[in-house]
């Protein structure tokens, strides 16, 4: 039997903005489950194809965007793409191995950046912007990876007549239609509407304080997110320009004569540079996550 306690012991409240590890797990699981469910529908929804214009819902972006806008963006962003892999790809036997990894990184990155930009989920424009940024990053990086597959997969691709142009056109169309359908119709609009309705309602169900302008995401996620967004955008731009060069598409007077000097080998430098920027960005994001985790641990 324990002796009667002499002094009253007290356990004080932790900072309510600080997520406990179990709450992180909750956000992760919730985001995973919901996006997994959403993806089952996109599997079933039909695609409309009219010439080069393909109309399909590649995913219901609003679901994870609402999650990253309302909850801690990092854990929600990590959970959502896993939901897609688990519920659709693995269970439906559509698992594509390494391909899943790139998809995971693209989407998680896009969602994290998008979610971090949101200051107040009840502001519709912020959430809508987050949705567009998320889809822009995901589909942009995805498009570049697809293009590089052609580069690696086809011998001397830049010399094959019509190939670079066709790839650019295909990827360009795909990107545009994805952005409009997934990014806006099934992204920005429903996300803005749902996030505002759910804000302040769903958080208490999970024992959390709602996120708003006075209680921003802990750490410096926002600043970092802006940096990552810029870096991704630049690396995308550089990759696209690399392809444009290969396709002999010339923009005004911008006609680099170093091409003649160094030969097409320089193209690889361009592609390589964009890859380095991308890897650097991911590494920075990871390091940041680790740092903020360390900070959290210290504060606990």
């Amino acid at each position: 039997m324990t002796e009667p306690r002499t002094a009253t012991r007290k356990r004080s409240l932790p900072d309510p903005n600080q997520l406990s590890s179990s709450q992180k797990l909750m956000v992760f699981v919730l985001s995973m489950t919901l996006f997994g469910l959403a993806n089952i529908f996109t599997e079933i929804l039909p695609e409309f194809r009219l010439g080069p214009v393909e109309l399909s819902v590649s995913y219901l972006a609003f679901v994870p965007v609402v999650m990253v806008s309302l909850f801690h963006p990092l854990y929600a962003a990590l959970g959502a793409p896993l939901g897609e892999i688990v519920f659709v790809d693995l269970l439906m036997g559509d698992f594509s191995g390494i391909g899943e990894l790139e998809g995971y990184i693209q989407l998680a990155l896009g969602l994290y950046v998008g979610g971090s930009l949101v200051r107040d989920p009840s502001r519709k424009w912020q959430v809508a912007a987050a949705a567009m940024v998320a889809v822009l990053i995901d589909k942009g990086v995805g498009g570049v990876i697809d293009m590089s597959k052609v580069w690696v997969g086809v011998e001397d691709a830049e010399y094959v007549d019509g190939l670079p142009e066709s790839i650019l056109v295909i990827e360009g169309f795909a990107f545009a239609s994805d952005f409009i359908i997934s990014g806006i119709l099934f992204g920005a609009i429903p996300a803005a509407y749902l996030a505002a309705r759910l804000h302040g309602k769903i958080e208490p169900l999970m024992g959390m304080t709602p996120r708003d302008a006075d209680h921003p995401v802990p750490g410096r996620a926002r600043k970092n997110a802006a940096f990552i967004a810029l870096a991704v955008f630049l690396s995308l731009a550089s990759a696209v320009f690399t392809f444009l060069e290969a396709a002999d598409v010339k923009f005004g007077v911008w006609e680099p004569d170093f091409l003649d000097q160094y030969g097409t080998g320089f193209l690889w430098v361009g592609a390589g540079a964009s890859l380095v920027v991308l890897i650097g960005t991911v590494a920075a994001a990871r390091a940041n996550a680790r740092r903020s985790r360390a900070e959290n641990e210290k504060e606990r």
Partner: peptide, 21 residues
């Protein structure tokens, strides 16, 4: 309580010889 659902906790609980705090 109080490890998963945090809050203001005073007093003590002993379960199967373990102090829960």
């Amino acid at each position: 309580i109080p490890h998963f659902w945090t809050g203001e906790f005073t007093g003590g609980a002993t379960v199967d010889g373990l102090d829960t705090l």
